[in-house]
Each structure stands twice: as structure tokens, then as C-alpha cells.
């Protein structure tokens, strides 16, 4: 088998790339797919802590590139919950120049035949780290939040992905707050779809459970009660080709809210 190689990217930092990789990776593994997640954020490694695997690291991405360890598989860390889920961690003490796009392509080539999915967690920005992360990918998931700055950066990233011949990136809209959308104080899915004009893969509501799950090092997809977890489970089903309706974000206001609407003639 030749696995799908997907880069998760956003341009802007702090919009949820790493959280998304952890959740999608875990979600796919829950569906019995063989998955490897590569943390390409060299110098600022984080996917290990989000996954709760920080104590198991021996070798990292740069060790593999420089052949300090004998093979890629030596550096893979097996997840503690799912035996078909693996992490290739970033180097923490090196900088972004420690890797080249060619090395990245070689590493991914070596993994491709053994996995169904190779997910690459891209660093923020559009410089070398981005170039490395994108080099080996044939698909892309763009993450944004409903804020001007994040959407603007997502637009730029979509342009840059095109230059790398990734023409059909899909969008995950993260941290949507239905209450604010209802009040007209947050851009809605339609607004953002309209502007970015790429296919929507998922809408993830803002959810305190994400912070709790990160504290514990357990991705929210494993939590049946987390709304964000449910959204990520839906994302995974869509990646697998299922038609899953999108969560409604403008949930009906309560009785008092409806009364207000009538008062305002809306």
C-alpha cells in the first residue's frame, strides 16, 4: 500500500495545528488505520506532549535525516493507547536549517509503504520549516480560526500550496464559538467559505475539553463527551470518504432568546 501523505498547516501560529494532527491521527488509528504523525516543527517540538509521549523519545526527525539512527522505524514512538499509531518527533535542540526538503522526502518515502496515513505537523510561518513540511506531502489540511488574521494567513498558505502543486487543500475551521456567531460577533462558516473558497473538511467548536485533554496528554477524540472530540471524529470520517453532515453552529436560542428575536422583528 502507498499511504496518503497529508500536511496540516495554517500560516499563523496558535490556531490548532498540533491539536488537529493529534486528534486526526488518533481518530484514524481508532478506525484501525496505520498512522504515523511527523512533527516537522524543529526546535519547537510539541506533538509529543499533546500526545502524552514526551518521556519515550530516543531519536528524532533530525537523527533520522542525518542517519544517526539506523532506520526511520528506530525513531518511531508507538502510542501508549493504540498499537497502530506512531509519532516521529521533531528535534528540540536544533534549528529549522537542520533539515532539507530532500531529506524530508526521503524519510516519507521510506515510511509510505508501511502506513495508511502520514500526517505532517507543519510549523507556523512560510519559511524553511514550511517548505520542509510541504515538500513530501500530496494533500493538505489548512487550519484557521474565525479571526481576520488567521483567515488572511490561511489565504496566503493556500496560494503557497498551489505553487507546490497541492491544488485541493481542505479546510478545518477551528475554535468556532456558536454563541458569538449568533450575536453577529464572529465570522461564520459561510463567511469564511466564501472568502477562502476551498472544500470544508470540518468545523470544530471552541471547547474547554481541549485544554483539559492537552493537560493530560490525551487527544479529545478519545473523549466521548467532548464536542471538539466529536467534531474531529467527523473530520476523520470525512477523510475516509463518508458523507457526514456538518454540525449546526447556529443552534436555536433559548425561550428568552426567541422572545427577544420576536421583539426585534427578526
Amino acid at each position: 500500500m502507498a499511504g496518503r501523505v497529508i500536511v496540516v498547516t495554517s500560516g499563523k501560529g496558535g490556531v490548532g495545528k498540533t491539536t488537529t494532527v493529534a486528534n486526526i491521527g488518533t481518530g484514524l488509528a481508532l478506525r484501525h488505520k496505520k498512522v504515523v504523525m511527523i512533527d516537522a516543527d524543529i526546535g519547537l517540538r510539541n506533538l509529543d506532549v499533546v500526545m502524552g509521549l514526551e518521556n519515550r523519545i530516543v531519536y528524532d526527525l533530525v537523527d533520522v535525516a542525518e542517519k544517526t539512527c539506523r532506520s526511520v522505524s528506530k525513531a518511531l514512538i508507538k502510542d501508549k493507547r493504540l498499537s497502530n499509531l506512531f509519532l516521529l518527533p521533531a528535534a528540540q535542540t536544533r534549528n529549522k536549517d537542520a533539515l532539507t526538503p530532500e531529506q524530508m522526502i526521503a524519510i516519507v518515502d521510506e515510511l509510505k509503504d508501511d502506513f495508511d496515513y502520514i500526517l505532517i505537523d507543519c510549523p507556523a510561518g512560510i519559511e524553511g520549516g514550511f517548505q520542509n513540511a510541504v515538500a513530501a506531502a500530496s494533500e493538505a489540511i489548512v487550519i484557521t480560526t474565525p479571526e481576520i488574521s488567521a483567515v488572511r494567513d490561511a489565504d496566503r498558505i493556500i496560494g503557497l500550496l498551489q505553487e507546490k502543486e497541492i491544488y485541493d487543500p481542505v479546510l478545518v475551521l477551528n475554535r468556532l464559538r456558536p454563541e458569538m456567531v449568533r450575536k453577529g460577533d464572529m465570522m461564520d462558516v459561510d463567511d469564511i467559505n466564501d472568502i477562502l473558497a476551498i472544500k470544508l473538511l470540518g468545523i470544530v467548536p471552541d471547547d474547554e475539553e481541549i485544554i483539559i485533554s492537552t493537560n493530560k496528554g490525551e487527544p479529545a477524540v478519545l473523549n466521548a463527551h467532548s464536542k471538539a472530540g466529536e467534531a474531529f471524529r467527523n473530520v476523520v470520517r470525512r477523510m475516509e470518504g463518508e458523507e457526514v453532515p456538518f454540525m449546526s453552529v447556529d443552534g436555536e436560542p433559548g425561550l428568552f432568546g426567541r422572545f427577544l428575536k420576536i421583539l426585534q422583528g427578526k
Binding site: 481576520i148 453577529g184 460577533d185 463567511d191 472568502i195
Partner: peptide, 11 residues
């Protein structure tokens, strides 16, 4: 609503 400002400015 501030969202409209966001959409306009973004465009």
C-alpha cells in the same frame, strides 16, 4: 455587528 466589519476588512 462586528463580524460584518471583519468580513469587509478581510475582503
Amino acid at each position: 455587528p462586528s463580524k460584518k466589519q471583519a468580513v469587509e476588512r478581510l475582503r
